[in-house]
Amino acid sequence: MSAVATLRRSRRGGQPASRRLRPWYKNGSLVAGLIIVGIMVLLAVLAPLISPDNPLHQNLDQALQGPSGTHWLGTDKLGRDVLSRLLYGARVDLKIGFLAVLIPFVVGSILGAIAGYYGGWIDIIIMRVVDVFYAFPLYLLVIALVFVLGSGERSIYLAIALVSWVSYCKIVRGEVIVARRQEYVQAARLGGLKNMRVLARHVGPNVVSQAITYAMSDIIMDIMVIVTLGYLGLGITPPTAEWGSMISDAQEFITTLWWMAVLPGIAVVITGLGLSLIGDGLGDLLSPERRR
């Protein structure tokens, strides 16, 4: 009985019920992911300071050595230090991974929001273009584009951006269609607010979380694409250290010097794990239900 009375009193009063939001640092997967990715980024940034050797420095006398005091992770077939190449490779792969997500995230989300909010022929046009891109397998399209644009960092950005904006477009469009029916969006429109303002302030913040969560897994996808391109010889031009080309170069020694291929693979997996955890944590943190 007294519980009911307390409840009623709290509902009557003008004060908000003091329900605290769980702070972000108590979100286990987010923190774990941030730590993992943070360490990877830190290693990449500090690579010039902490690498034991120049990653491009060849020493054919000491090619294909196992781990030792001078070369902790051994050397590759040109006698280059594997640890140094791994650290410098992180710079390339992480940079492309993050940058290649930025453009499609922004462009795709904006186009998706416009398609979902306005509907009608704008929606039809945008979504038919999306369908065309969706009809091709991702890798096939990226490889074809890189082939046309020529290998190198810039064409990789471009190819990934051209292909992957469609996912953001689809995700955000679906979310916007749901949000558009929400009464707070109707209330904003009937309150006489302009469409752009309604989109930016009332629809956008409530739908962007899905796209951000997806972006985290998309970074992993992009790193996979870079690694795959590197493996196929279409990626970053040698001799630049990059995880994909390291795996590709090491495959002929997989039976004897297996760590040369496995180590860059592990680097990819750890980065992917960290980003997945961040995506998972952000999904919890950003969902509007949390504020309900």
């Binding site: 009464e183 707070y184 209330a187 309150g191 302030r201 009332h202 409530n206 509007p288």
Partner: peptide, 30 residues
């Protein structure tokens, strides 16, 4: 101006307020 003259209050107060805006920003915006 025409929107201003007629305002609406919705049935479900759980969906008629933007969950990402504080009360102050909701009111100050209009």
């Amino acid at each position: 101006g025409e929107h201003r003259r007629i305002q609406m209050v919705f049935q479900d107060p759980y969906s008629s307020l933007n969950p990402r805006l504080t009360v102050r920003s909701t009111l100050a915006e209009v």
